[in-house]
Computed example of a mutant assay.
Amino acid sequence: MSRQQFDLTDFEWSIIQSLLPNKPRGVPRVDDRRVINGILWRFRTGSPWADVPERYGPYTTCYNRFVRWRKAGVWDHVLHEVAKAFDGDIVMIDSSCVRVHQHAANGKKGDQDDGCMGRSRGGLTTKIHALVDADGRPIGLDLTAGQTHDSRMAEPMLKDIGKGAIILADRAYDTNALRALAKEKRAWANIPAKRNRKETFPFSGWVYRQRNLVERFFNKLKQFRGIATRYDKDPRNFLA
């Protein structure tokens, strides 16, 4: 089978192959690389799982393995292992909203769990929070409802940064709590101060230019239609 446009390259497969569960015994299963390519096809196109082409195996296999590995923490493990190589000197944090499709928004009436969906300027939305390194690789990801303020997730996502790190973020993250966390970690919060700030803080516009990497990360992420629009009802599946 020839490689399709969005399939894993040999180099990409060599990185994640050893991070996947190994099942040497039992009934032979559909090849992992083939299934992951099917999962990527689904998110790249935003199509229903039932439309996954037969060349990737049964669509039920793609869906079931995606969910089973999510429950087993496989996708978190892959992100964690890839993030080990990150350059810890500079980290960038930002967020971006995605619209929630009506198929994902049909939760039970009166349910207290918002499923990381909320009303914002764009209607019913989910906000993706991302922490990336100096090469634009993701270190951490999380979800909230669309109307949640960006700074709400800053502290939990930055709690494990190393000493002496440089934090790059826009004005939305200029909070006393985040600056106190940076001081505690002996990090430098290179964040432009809000216009109503009376205090002044050290700020380098030249270093701040590097923050475009987190913007470019979201740009690449949203090339996947299944992420640019949320079709998954379960927020854990969407985050995975």
Rank of each mutant, 00 (worst) to 15 (best):
232 D>G: 07
139 I>K: 03
2 S>D: 09
25 R>K: 15
60 T>S: 15
100 V>Q: 05
85 A>E: 13
3 R>Q: 14
227 I>G: 09
65 R>A: 06
108 K>T: 08
82 V>C: 15
99 R>G: 14
125 T>Q: 09
42 R>N: 10
43 F>H: 09
47 S>W: 14
204 S>D: 14
168 L>T: 06
71 K>W: 03
9 T>N: 12
21 P>A: 14
86 F>R: 14
87 D>E: 15
198 K>I: 09
113 D>V: 07
231 Y>E: 01
37 N>K: 12
30 V>Y: 15
233 K>C: 06
52 V>Q: 11
41 W>M: 06
49 W>V: 01
223 Q>F: 02
96 S>P: 01
227 I>L: 10
148 T>E: 15
152 R>A: 15
181 L>Y: 00
220 K>D: 06
209 R>D: 03
64 N>H: 14
14 S>L: 10
50 A>W: 08
126 T>I: 02
215 E>C: 09
26 G>M: 09
156 P>K: 13
90 I>Y: 08
237 N>S: 08
150 D>L: 11
102 Q>T: 10
43 F>E: 03
115 G>V: 04
33 R>W: 12
47 S>M: 13
19 L>K: 01
143 L>P: 02
62 C>Y: 08
119 R>C: 07
167 I>Q: 05
181 L>T: 00
202 P>F: 12
82 V>F: 12
177 A>Q: 09
85 A>N: 14
186 R>G: 11
173 Y>Q: 06
100 V>F: 05
173 Y>V: 02
218 F>S: 00
198 K>N: 08
138 P>T: 02
76 D>C: 09
80 H>W: 11
62 C>T: 05
185 K>I: 02
88 G>P: 00
95 S>H: 04
240 A>P: 00
168 L>H: 03
177 A>F: 03
234 D>K: 06
14 S>W: 01
146 G>V: 07
